[in-house]
Design a protein around this nucleic acid. Structure first.
Lengths: 115, 115
DNA sequence: TATATTTACTCCGACAGGCGTAGTACGACA
DNA sequence: TGTCGTACTACGCCTGTCGGAGTAAATATA
């Protein structure tokens, strides 16, 4: 089966992550599992990609983090919450997706189109 | 209006270009105009992006070039022709697109979906 | 006739996101 | 005791894209 290459997904990891934060804050490991589950194993995000996306988006003000220190055994976990700017960014990226999809599909041999 | 960012289109320039070579060989300047026309000005490929894509794809055996020296006044123009490997690559990329689209749309707030 | 625009590239270097590799640390389970 | 799952962090490379500049001939405009 075809694989999703990094060049193709590039630019969409942000919105995939933000989507999963729309309703509730979450953290890296859970987000990663949810992406895998929701995509039915079609897309498995790399850990480094995920965590560097968090850092980048926090720097850009799209998410806020808070560290939960009270986990059993002194383990810590960093939760991220989407900000209003993050929601706005998500909306803009969704619009961009619609446009991009429209454009790309003019150059795609879809079902039944001869190549 | 939303703009198509380089991160988003990344990975698709190849298939956009190859699509325009499916039926006939062509050259940079014309491809560039065709992309603009076919996308209704929604996507204007940068010259450097286009020409470096040609070089890369020739190195990978997806296109073959031949220089037309016989233009009026000694100007030259480099035509590119898609190879069988290029067609195969195009097909694979189209499949990848279908899959990627399917995955991304699970994380996209489409029409009527609340954000 | 002079100037601007279009055609058709080429070269260089910077940037940013993704990713490979490695490492840390704790708990549970066998 | 060792492996697996959880939950990250750090470092540095790779690659496609892009900004900027340059070249040069053909054609359109004034």
């Amino acid at each position: 089966m075809a694989e999703i290459s990094s060049d193709v997904i590039r630019g969409y990891n942000d919105i995939i992550i933000l989507y999963l934060l729309l309703n509730d804050p979450s953290y890296g490991y859970e987000i990663s599992k949810q992406i895998r589950t929701l995509s039915e194993d079609k897309y498995i995000i790399k850990e480094t990609t995920l965590y560097s996306a968090f850092t980048r988006m926090e720097k850009n003000g799209f998410v806020e983090s808070c560290v939960d220190q009270d986990l059993a055994g002194g383990k810590k976990r960093t939760y991220y919450r989407i900000t209003p700017a993050g929601r706005e960014y998500y909306r803009a990226k969704c619009e961009e997706w619609m446009l991009t999809k429209e454009v790309i599909e003019k150059f795609i041999a879809g079902e039944g189109r001869a190549v």
